[in-house]
């Protein structure tokens, strides 16, 4: 689920910045001596940016003494998960970053494992999903999109940056389902890069684009699109003008979370120490700087809350994917 988008490139920039400048070790004693981050994808992706950004905030604020990073790509993230499970005993100092795709890819059986095989440390940040249309589009709200869709489902193409059955598609299907439409009829057109999907929107090839909220904000700020709906529970102060789907009467909420996992059977004391360190991080100015630079939204789900959150998300996605025929 590699997304070649604005989001990840900002993350790249940040990530590489950190790999160069993160050697500064604070003087006072840290809560955790050292921490190793396992990144299931190559340098420059969203996972990479999250791990390195979190590592930067933790070390600069002195919560963690030193952080190291390891990129292990392969199998769309499966290789790193397998590695962490096979080397559980020697990986107590390791945190692996992951996000919504671990749920989706486990469901479709792409991985022989799922998130329950790992120790769930905490969900840390998230990004809502959003729908955007061309600034000159006659559609002004998600309701308009639904109306157009009802008139002729084959004439309304919704694009996105993920494969069919991937996140952007699921969000589109979820929203249409909330509007009482058959989610399998949604004409979803996948693009392999955010830029290409955007070009398709501007050229009129697709009528709407399903994308991440932070990316939608960047596009709206450039003055080319209107955000007609986002999947948060309420309007977000990052872009107050964007209406939620909920306030338009469509009960669809979705958040693409990112968070951290430990090795299976990680001792409880260790897991709790990591959770405490992450909780402490939110109040530091160092984290605020990283968060703002990347346009992330704080969505903190530590320990048990993370387990419930993931199980809920899994149930919703499973239901939707079954309806869509992917399971």
């Amino acid at each position: 689920m590699l997304k070649f988008s604005r989001r990840s490139f900002v993350a790249t920039a940040a990530a590489v910045a950190m790999s160069i400048f993160s050697s500064a070790v604070p003087a006072h004693a840290a809560d955790i001596d050292k921490l190793h981050f396992l990144i299931p994808g190559g340098a420059g992706g969203g996972w990479d940016g999250t791990a390195r950004g979190t590592g930067e905030a933790l070390t600069k604020s002195g919560i963690v003494g030193s952080a190291s990073f390891e990129n292990m790509s392969g199998g769309g993230g499966g290789k790193a998960i397998g590695y962490l499970i096979e080397n559980a005993a020697s990986s107590h100092g390791t945190l692996m970053v992951n996000s919504t795709p671990i749920v989706i890819r486990s469901l479709v059986g792409r991985f022989p494992y799922n998130f329950r095989d790992l120790t769930m440390i905490a969900g840390t940040i998230g990004d809502y999903a959003a729908f955007v249309v061309h600034k000159d589009s006659p559609l002004n709200s998600f309701k308009d999109l639904v109306t157009a869709y009802k008139a002729n489902p084959r004439k309304v193409a919704i694009g996105g940056g993920s494969v069919p059955g991937g996140m952007d598609h699921l969000v589109a299907a979820m929203a249409m389902q909330a509007a009482g439409e058959d989610p399998t009829k949604v004409k979803y057109i996948p693009y392999d890069a955010g830029g290409k999907a955007m070009a398709a929107l501007l050229s009129g090839e697709i009528q709407a684009l399903s994308t991440g909220f932070s990316e939608a904000i960047a596009l709206a700020n450039a003055g080319e699109v209107k955000i007609i709906g986002m999947t948060g529970p309420e309007r977000n102060d990052a872009y107050e003008d964007a209406p939620t789907l909920k306030e338009q009467g469509y009960d669809a909420e979705f958040v693409n979370w990112r968070g951290f996992f430990g090795a299976p059977n990680l001792p409880e004391a260790k897991a709790n120490a990591y959770r405490a360190a992450i909780a402490k991080m939110y109040d530091t100015p160092e984290w605020e700087a990283v968060r703002q630079r990347n346009g992330w939204v704080n969505i903190h789900n530590p320990g048990e809350k993370f387990v419930t959150f993931l199980s809920d998300q899994e149930a919703i996605i499973k239901d939707l994917m079954t309806k869509l025929g992917f399971l």
């Binding site: 070649f4 988008s5 604005r6 990840s8 490139f9 900002v10 790249t12 920039a13 940040a14 890069a193 955010g194 830029g195 955007m198 070009a199 501007l202 960047a218 596009l219 700020n221 450039a222 003055g223 080319e224 630079r293």
Partner: peptide
């Protein structure tokens, strides 16, 4: 248009956005 036509321009777009310039 703010559309990156290639991988390299996509990276540059990232840099521009990080510098608070919205192409």
């Amino acid at each position: 248009l703010g559309i990156p036509g290639s991988g390299t321009t996509a990276i540059l777009l990232g840099a521009l956005v990080a510098l608070n310039v919205n192409p």
